[in-house]
C-alpha cells in the first residue's frame, strides 16, 4: 500500500515539466483568443441531450448525460448573436481508452460567425504557432516522431487524394463505410508526414457529421482534421445551419444506433429551435488539448500529460 503511494507520488513529480508545459500552452491559447476578441464561455457539463453521433457514446449522469462536446450550447449562443466564442473544458466519451484516448479529456472549441472552415484553418495555424513559440521559443521542436516545423506551409490533402495515394481507392467517388475507417487507421494515417502539420480535408458526405456540403464540390463536406506527429488533434467544420438537414441527420444516426443496439439520446429541441430561428453562417472546431500538449512536449501517451488518470470500469 505504502509502495503504491510512493509510486503515485513519484509519478506526479516526474510529470512536473509536462504539467508546466501544459500550463504555458493554456496561457498561450487564452492570450491568443483574447487578442482576437473572442469571448471565453462555460456551458453546462451535465446536459439532457448530448449531440447524437453514430460512434460517440455519452456517459449517463443521473437523468441526463455528461457532455461529449459543448457544440450545441455554443451554437445556441451564436444563434443568439454572439460572433466569436471559445471554451476550454472537460468532455466525456464512454469506453474510449487507449494511448491517445481517455474517457474524460480536455477540449478546446471555438466558433466564428461569417466564416468557413478556411478561416478556422487560419486561426488554427496562428494558434499552434503561438503555442510553439510560448513553449519552445521556436516553430520547430522534437516530437516523439521526430522534428516538426509548424512555420512552413502545412500540408493540405483532400480525403480523396489521401485515400488514392495511401489506400488505392477513392471514398468520395464510391463510399464504403467499413473500409473507410479501417483503411484510415491502417493505411492513410500511418502514411501521413510527421515533419509538418497535415490537414486532411473535404470528407465524403456520409462522413460529414455536422459539417455543411461544400459550395465548390457538392460531393464532399467542408470538414477538415489536423494531424500533428501522426496524431489527430482537431476536427473543424463549416457548420451545418439548415434545421431540416440537421433533423434528417439526427434521424439517420438514430436509426443506425438503434440497429446496432446503441442508446439513442433525445433530440436537443432547444438547439433545433435555435436553428429554426436562424443560425448565421459559421464555422467551428474541436481541438483535443491533451493531445496538443502531447505533440508539443513529445509525449507518446495521454497519461504523460495529465496529472491524474482515474480508472472507473464502464
Amino acid at each position: 500500500m505504502q509502495n503504491r503511494n510512493l509510486k503515485r507520488t513519484a509519478r506526479l513529480n516526474a510529470l512536473k515539466p509536462r504539467l508546466e508545459a501544459r500550463h504555458q500552452c493554456l496561457k498561450a491559447i487564452r492570450a491568443w483568443f483574447d487578442q482576437q476578441g473572442f469571448l471565453e464561455v462555460e456551458t453546462p457539463i451535465r446536459i439532457p441531450s448530448p449531440a447524437l453521433e453514430q460512434y460517440i457514446d455519452a456517459e449517463p449522469s443521473g437523468q441526463g448525460f455528461l457532455r461529449t462536446s459543448p457544440e450545441f450550447h455554443l451554437k445556441r449562443m451564436l444563434a443568439a448573436g454572439y460572433d466569436r466564442l471559445y471554451q476550454i473544458g472537460p468532455c466525456f466519451r464512454q469506453g474510449e481508452r487507449g494511448a491517445i484516448h481517455h474517457p474524460e479529456f480536455s477540449m478546446l472549441e471555438w466558433y466564428r460567425t461569417g466564416a468557413t472552415y478556411r478561416e478556422i484553418l487560419d486561426d488554427t495555424t496562428q494558434l499552434i504557432r503561438a503555442c510553439a513559440r510560448a513553449l519552445h521559443g521556436s516553430l520547430r521542436w522534437e516530437t516523439h516522431r521526430g522534428m516538426i516545423d509548424v512555420g512552413q506551409d502545412w500540408q493540405r490533402l483532400t480525403v480523396a487524394d489521401a485515400f488514392q495515394q495511401y489506400a488505392g481507392w477513392d471514398p468520395v467517388a464510391r463510399w464504403d463505410a467499413e473500409r473507410f475507417d479501417v483503411d484510415l487507421v491502417e493505411k492513410v494515417e500511418p502514411g501521413l508526414p510527421h515533419d509538418r502539420p497535415v490537414i486532411l480535408m473535404d470528407y465524403p458526405l456520409p462522413a460529414a457529421a455536422f459539417s455543411r456540403r461544400s459550395r465548390l464540390n457538392p460531393g464532399v463536406a467542408e470538414r477538415w482534421e489536423l494531424y500533428l506527429a501522426g496524431m489527430e488533434i482537431a476536427n473543424a467544420y463549416s457548420e451545418l445551419t439548415d434545421p431540416d438537414e440537421q433533423a434528417m441527420r439526427y434521424e439517420q444516426d438514430a436509426a443506425d444506433r438503434r440497429r446496432r443496439g446503441k442508446p439513442v439520446y433525445p433530440r436537443d429541441e432547444a438547439f433545433l429551435q435555435a436553428l429554426h430561428e436562424g443560425l448565421p453562417e459559421c464555422a467551428g472546431i474541436a481541438l483535443g488539448v491533451d493531445r496538443l500538449v502531447m505533440a508539443l512536449t513529445g509525449a507518446e501517451t495521454l497519461d504523460e500529460v495529465v496529472a491524474f488518470r482515474e480508472i472507473i470500469p464502464d
Binding site: 453521433e53 453514430q54 460512434y55 460517440i56 469506453g95 474510449e96 481508452r97 487507449g98 494511448a99 484516448h101 473507410f180 475507417d181 479501417v182 484510415l184 487507421v185 491502417e186 494515417e189 462522413a207 457529421a209 482534421e225 489527430e232 476536427n235
Partner: peptide, 14 residues
C-alpha cells in the same frame, strides 16, 4: 494491442 478511433469514426482494435 492498441485502441484506435479516428475522428467521428468507429472504435477499432489494432
Amino acid at each position: 494491442f492498441q485502441f484506435v478511433k479516428p475522428g467521428k469514426g468507429q472504435a477499432m482494435y489494432k
